[in-house]
Computed example of a mutant assay.
Amino acid sequence: MPGLERRGWVGPIIFAGVMMIVLGAFHVFQGFVALVNDDFYVQNDRLAIHLDYTAWGWGHLLVGTVVFVAGFCVLLGQVWARIVGVILAVVSILVNIAFLAAYPGWTTIMVAVDVLVIWALTFHGREVRPPGTGGSPYRGD
């Protein structure tokens, strides 16, 4: 990719960036569905946090947009985007767990992908850097 210094484990970082873009799009899609059709998701009192589905929709839109943008920045090798990516993946897990009773299958998929993103961003985070930053992927510099 242009603007990236490739290292041995760059694949998981590219995976994380692409999956963050996909997760962001999924969250935005979930948000639009919740805003447009409140009856799409199962209406019950078993939700961990009781909010109106319109509020859930806006929450998903907000989180999704930030995850989407951060995913592109991870692909550009931005360190801050990796940090934001991990934080937002944790927030995404928490939001989805609270949403579990409304749509369990989808929630399980979203949480699993969030866990993979966290793994890739934390384990292989130094493998993608902007050009000219130097350092070795094998030392802590």
Rank of each mutant, 00 (worst) to 15 (best):
P130W: 05
R7C: 00
L75M: 13
H124N: 10
L94Q: 11
V36C: 05
G24C: 11
V79Q: 05
H27E: 13
P130C: 04
I49G: 01
R6V: 10
V66D: 01
M1I: 13
W9I: 00
V42R: 12
H50Y: 01
A70F: 02
P137A: 08
F15S: 11
T122E: 01
I13N: 05
G64N: 08
M110V: 15
L100Y: 14
V36F: 11
A120I: 02
E127Y: 03
L23R: 09
I13Y: 00
H60Q: 09
V111I: 15
V74W: 00
L88N: 11
V33Y: 09
A81S: 14
V128P: 01
G85D: 06
V22P: 02
A89I: 03
F15Y: 13
I97M: 15
S92F: 00
G11F: 00
R7D: 04
V95K: 06
R129D: 03
G105M: 06
R7L: 01
M1T: 14
D38W: 02
A112N: 00
D38H: 11
A89M: 13
V90W: 14
V63L: 15
V90F: 15
P137E: 15
L4E: 01
V36R: 11
V66E: 03
D39F: 09
G140S: 14
G11I: 00
L51W: 15
L61P: 01
I14N: 09
V95Y: 03
W119H: 04
I87D: 03
A55Q: 14
L116Q: 09
L94V: 10
G3D: 08
Q78E: 06
I97C: 08
L88F: 15
L47N: 05
Q43I: 05
L61R: 03
L94G: 15
W58K: 10
V74Q: 05
Y41M: 04
D38K: 15
D141N: 12
G125E: 04
V74E: 02
F99Y: 12
S136W: 03
G17I: 01
G31C: 07
P137F: 05
R46I: 00
T107P: 01
D114A: 14
R126Q: 09
I49L: 14
L75S: 08
G31K: 10
V63K: 07
R126E: 04
P104Y: 11
V67P: 05
L76M: 13
G135L: 09
